[in-house]
């Protein structure tokens, strides 16, 4: 009997080993371990054994049963794993085929520049002031120290609607409007972005409509060194930490002293190249200390308050930053152009 059990175990294990699919394994289980299986058969003959041998034989039978069951289980696990692997292998896809495109658009490059500048200055305590694109002669010129007949009005030939109303030629009217609103009291820090208009024929470098961003800071003891420091922060943020700035004297009727800011040319690093026309510097913006007449006209006491203002063209900044070579691209809106500004460095 004992031998029969050992043989059965041997037989079953061999069967398990040879089995190639789950069905065969299942058959083996049923045939060996089932109620009508050979082990049960063997155990039926236990009655013939002595009382001493009976438990011994019982234990052996159980052991054989366990060994077989365990072998089945192990084999089954292996097979299931293989089965899964086979199924997964059959599910293989070409991972290099293109994905389902997610349709997205993006900011116009000018909006991108403007928002970047807005955010930089918001971080420094500025708010964003917006105003009308059609302005009165007063806010566009007179309040900015450009009385009628002033020669500097020539610098920006304008689109008039009536004698007193015109398309604003710069965003500077917001300086006067903002100061007036404050009624001569308290500090001001604003950034004014917006569209402006001048009588220019559209070509690669001119546009009758373009954008401008203006900044204005008014307070007690605002100094030109503050302007320089602020512009330095701006230039480094927009054009890179390794850029240097320089201020050059210039003239604007609404600031005194007036300056123009250049940054060191990033192409040649200040050595001089064709981009900077050999000077090593690239002109970025105009700025200056707010003219006392402008402060006074808007109700600020120029003895107590000083301020600085700066103004720049997002078109030009985008041209310098991204190498755009024709201002008309901004207003033609060729999708092949617009698309290029989806990347964020």
């Amino acid at each position: 009997m004992e031998q029969r059990l050992v043989e059965l175990q041997q037989e079953a294990l061999e069967g398990i080993k040879k089995a190639t699919d789950l069905k065969e394994i299942n058959d083996i289980r049923v045939s060996y371990l089932g109620k009508k299986g050979p082990i049960t058969e063997v155990l039926k003959g236990m009655g013939k054994l002595s009382a001493e041998e009976r438990p011994k034989m019982g234990a052996l039978a159980n052991e054989v049963r366990d060994v077989i069951a365990k072998a089945i289980e192990e084999k089954q696990a292996v097979m299931e794993e293989e089965e899964v692997a086979k199924k997964l292998a059959s599910e293989t896809i070409d991972v290099t085929l293109p994905g389902r495109p997610v349709k997205t658009g993006n900011h116009h490059p000018l909006t991108r520049i403007i928002e970047e500048i807005e955010d930089l200055f918001i971080g420094m305590g500025y708010t964003i002031a917006e105003g009308p694109e059609v302005e009165s002669d007063y806010y566009n010129f007179e309040a900015l120290n450009l009385p009628k007949g002033h020669p500097a009005r020539d610098m920006q030939d304008s689109f008039y609607i009536t004698e007193e109303i015109l398309l604003r030629t710069h965003t500077s009217p917001m300086q006067a409007r903002t100061m007036e609103k404050k009624e001569g009291k308290g500090p001001i820090r604003i950034i004014c972005p917006g569209k402006v208009y001048r009588r220019d024929n559209d070509d690669a470098t001119h546009s009758h409509q373009f954008m401008q961003i203006e900044g204005l800071v008014v307070g007690e003891n605002i100094q030109m060194s503050d302007l320089k420091g602020t512009l330095d922060v701006f230039a480094k943020k927009m054009f890179g930490e390794d850029r240097e700035i320089r201020l050059r004297p210039s003239f604007f009727p609404f600031t005194e002293p007036s300056v123009e800011m250049d940054i060191s040319c990033k192409i040649c690093n200040g050595k001089g190249c064709s981009v900077c026309k050999g000077t090593g510097w690239i002109e970025i913006l105009g700025a200056g200390m707010v003219h006392p007449n402008v402060l006074e006209m808007a109700g600020y006491d120029s003895k107590k308050y000083t301020g600085f203002a700066f103004g720049m063209g997002p078109e030009r900044i985008a041209m310098l930053k991204y190498g755009v070579d024709d201002i008309r691209h901004y207003y033609t809106n060729d999708v092949r152009f617009l698309k290029q500004f989806s990347i964020h460095e």
Partner: peptide, 10 residues
């Protein structure tokens, strides 16, 4: 330098 004195919320 940077502007000193009373500041404004940005």
């Amino acid at each position: 330098t940077l502007p000193k004195g009373a500041s404004t919320p940005g």
